[in-house]
Design a protein around this nucleic acid. Sequence first.
DNA 1: CCGAAAATTGCAAACGTTTGCATAAAATAG
DNA 2: CTATTTTATGCAAACGTTTGCAATTTTCGG
Lengths: 355, 355
Amino acid sequence: MSKRTEKTIVDIAEELKLSISTVSRALNNHPNISAKTKEKVKKMANKLGYRPNAMAAGLRNSRSRTIGLVVPRISMFFPATISTVIQNKLHEHGYHVLICQSNDSLEQEIALAETLYSTRIDALAVSSTLYTTDFSHFDIFKDNNIPLVFFDRVPKDYQVKVVKGDDYLGGFTVTEHLIEKGCKDIVHISGPLTCNLYVDRVAGYKHALKKHKLAFKKSRIFYQELTRENALQVCEQIFAKQPWPDGIFAANDTTAITIMEYCRKLNLRVPEDIKIVGYSNDPRAEIITPSITSVDQFPALMGERVAAALLELMQQPVTIPQRYSEEIVPIQLIERVSSAAIVATRKAGVRKKLK
Amino acid sequence: MSKRTEKTIVDIAEELKLSISTVSRALNNHPNISAKTKEKVKKMANKLGYRPNAMAAGLRNSRSRTIGLVVPRISMFFPATISTVIQNKLHEHGYHVLICQSNDSLEQEIALAETLYSTRIDALAVSSTLYTTDFSHFDIFKDNNIPLVFFDRVPKDYQVKVVKGDDYLGGFTVTEHLIEKGCKDIVHISGPLTCNLYVDRVAGYKHALKKHKLAFKKSRIFYQELTRENALQVCEQIFAKQPWPDGIFAANDTTAITIMEYCRKLNLRVPEDIKIVGYSNDPRAEIITPSITSVDQFPALMGERVAAALLELMQQPVTIPQRYSEEIVPIQLIERVSSAAIVATRKAGVRKKLK
DNA sequence: CCGAAAATTGCAAACGTTTGCATAAAATAG
DNA sequence: CTATTTTATGCAAACGTTTGCAATTTTCGG
């Protein structure tokens, strides 16, 4: 209820007839302050309801103890999980995390970089927009030796620390899995090639085809933002004319789910008539019927790696210029019903006979 | 690559042989700076790569242009959606949002309040822990007239702005819905009563029973944190002895989903043998088979309301002390298959015959 | 009990802005 | 061409810390 309270260390100093510097040091547990002075100061600080002013401290020693985090959106499973982990981890070390969303807009990402720099964050982690190919808006950070880590959606040819999933292996594994389950004509629904993730997955897809002597057909691969709407549109195209594919590798689970629903409408049985695999292991993939095979990207692990990288960079002497270094987080195929082999009448098969 | 760059307005002033104040005013578009000076200053600012130092500015006029947001966790659908909206909305108005997670730990929530205060946030929005009944750790904000808004999980008897869902109506609507679909013995799985949400929903549940002359039985209601594990445990209890209930009102969708899976194992048909309703309208509720009836709480709308409240409070004269005021966001029952009436052989019914 | 070393404490500048007030320059009126 | 208003710029203090260095006090060996 009181106004203009805002006690400062000056108030404590006056109250105790000590110098400001002594109070400051006492509160920070500086070694050459006597134990009883510290005691006294802290007690008085409590009594007055003193709270340190982070901005003043930050200004003085140009460290905000805040780190920035830029992700496309936090309402999506994968980035949300990573953000959670990063935030909790860094908080343990006394850092705040400014979580920001680019909403997959390059323009917003650029603005974000600018204003984040203004708050003098101590470090920055970013998973870029789908469409970011020029990363120069992050140069300010590099130029001022502010630790910068990219994860998941990362740049290439940009001197910076990178933590990414094994998307090449992911693409390969999924495709080979489908082939082994009997697919001969596999459609791949990819995100735009402006994003590293999809480039790598496509490469894995192609490699698997080649290895198993299946022809790669341009017409069997689609590039677009992986939304529900786009997935529906692609379905229209795919199923407009025969022959229909017998396997679909969707680069995210939203797409996989949408396609499965579409197939149901066409009275196509999954996995008997067509097999579907998604990516990211969204919780929905497990829960839907039939459950969808997907790729676990271990978001929590990735989050930890990113947090660790940030912390490490922050305690390095400022002089070392950042270089490109890549850390790869493993992936794991989670086999479920949507891509199961069709073994005569196994229980799973029966269940899917309906409709 | 350069070091100790950090251009300041002083550099601009020197370069242009102007005073620091003029530069400052020019950059802030102060009215009594001539147009050409502004032009000149801005051009030079650009040339030098000047970036304002938010901490210095914040220190000077004690506004950080940052607002705090405390939620239990951002990896859950409901708070994630709200956070997204709040963040985007406030960003439009030039504010940063410091999104923090209490992980449903009161201890962490208290620590968060403390450190958020230290960063001198301009306002704070919080959805509290399940177990927060004493809110005095937020007193600092009230005492210093820092706008404070609670949402979803809110305190009672605490002088503060509150934005909440209509949980009473939600509880009532769900229960009545189950009754109208023919249920006579409805179990309610509630969260702990330390949290307002569940108190209200329980009240609604009881009211609906009463209205329809069904007896309320203490043994038919369970209070616990709504995790998957707890849900399984409750299932064990419920189905350990007959009679089994014919309707279940779960206070979140994770619980509803878990129960449905459990029922499937028992060869109980949903909705023929038992009807299930969840809460929050998690994306999984729609996608699972059978789809689960749930309650949409319009998280985006709630987010907008919270953001609006924060903005409004921030531009109020600081002197007005905060009072309790309640804003209620509507809810809507989303009817799906899990609670459908058993009408002989409608198509939906047939589909569920399997197994 | 003296003097030097060790342990404490204090002074004052600095961090980069913003802003009330004073001053200087330009515009207008008489 | 003054006198007066209007417009534009500059001075200097303040925001709340931290920290190098100087100053003071305490400790202790001899």
